[in-house]
Write a protein that binds this DNA or RNA. Structure first.
Lengths: 156, 156
DNA sequence: CCAATCTCATTAGCAGGCTATCGATCAATG
DNA sequence: CATTGATCGATAGCCTGCTAATGAGATTGG
């Protein structure tokens, strides 16, 4: 029963390590890749917006952005209209990494699921989705609009 | 195609967070739980042995053991026969946590897979196993002796 | 027997995740 | 207009994982 959870953890760890190794060859770490995947589509988001899309906390994005800035992958610009906001903009270096990284990602996914039939992939997909629904549905950890609220549900 | 990987990551993250939260109620964090699960069965292992069984590196076990020692969950004893070895022994406090934590783990696994049929669980299990086999078998991520040096695949 | 080597645990330092807190800025209200 | 409250990024500090380098102790070869 709990065996499935162990397999899930193990599989995810292997995939994460493989992804990190592949992307590191292009100067991008696994956590940075998540930010890139969003910014490649929509440049100039704020840390908070990114955190919401990536389902991580704002400090995680802030720290990752700092490392990416040091690596020359993005720059911070204060929003002229709202001084609280910081907008993250990709550099040409980050844009240049898009193709090879997307390709590496595709190859990894293909390799990992190479021994699965299409039906097995569909089954896997739906089973994972059910688990996610079960974990997020009955006890929603996030309210739309609210972000990273604590899990405290007891009254005041 | 890469969607399955995303779902896998997301599911694992949700489960990990839920497990950590549940175990924290018993004074045990998620990483410490892994060590406990092994030591409950076989007390007095060394950090290296534990690392091998848990499929993590030795420093990870050493650091976790240090935190667990501070939390009063285990004690370090030098092996009398071989001064290089350190044996990790559980305290009564760690033994007392076995029941409630096993129970919490069981409940979590049950909850997470509650909406799956037995057949779906079997499919999920085998699909994950295939991915793990694929990631560990055909292309061993590390050659013994080789050190995946990153960011430089080009010639001399 | 002693020096070189090997084996282990530890330490240092990084990445990536979290919560809690701070400081700055904006918005609303008196 | 000034104060107050909300919002947002940044910082501090923790846990968990990794690699590389250190150091103490065992083995082995000469």
């Amino acid at each position: 029963m709990t065996e499935v959870l162990r397999l899930l953890t193990r599989a995810q760890k292997l995939l994460r390590a493989a992804a990190d190794e592949a992307m590191s060859r292009h100067g991008v770490r696994i956590g940075q890749n998540l930010v890139l995947e969003v910014l490649w589509q929509t440049d100039g988001l704020t840390p908070g917006e990114l955190a919401a899309r990536l389902q991580v906390t704002t400090p995680t994005v802030v720290n990752t952005a700092t490392r990416m800035e040091a690596a020359g992958l993005l720059v911070r610009r204060r929003d002229p209209a709202d001084g609280r906001l910081v907008r993250l903009h990709l550099t040409p270096r980050a844009r240049a990494a898009e193709r090879p990284i997307a390709e590496a990602r595709r190859r990894l996914a293909e390799h990992a699921t190479a021994t699965l039939t299409d039906e097995e992939r569909r089954h896997l997909h739906s089973a994972l989705q059910k688990i996610i629904d079960q974990m997020t549905g009955p006890t929603p950890p996030l309210d739309p609009g609210e972000h990273t609220r604590s899990t405290d549900q007891g009254g005041p």
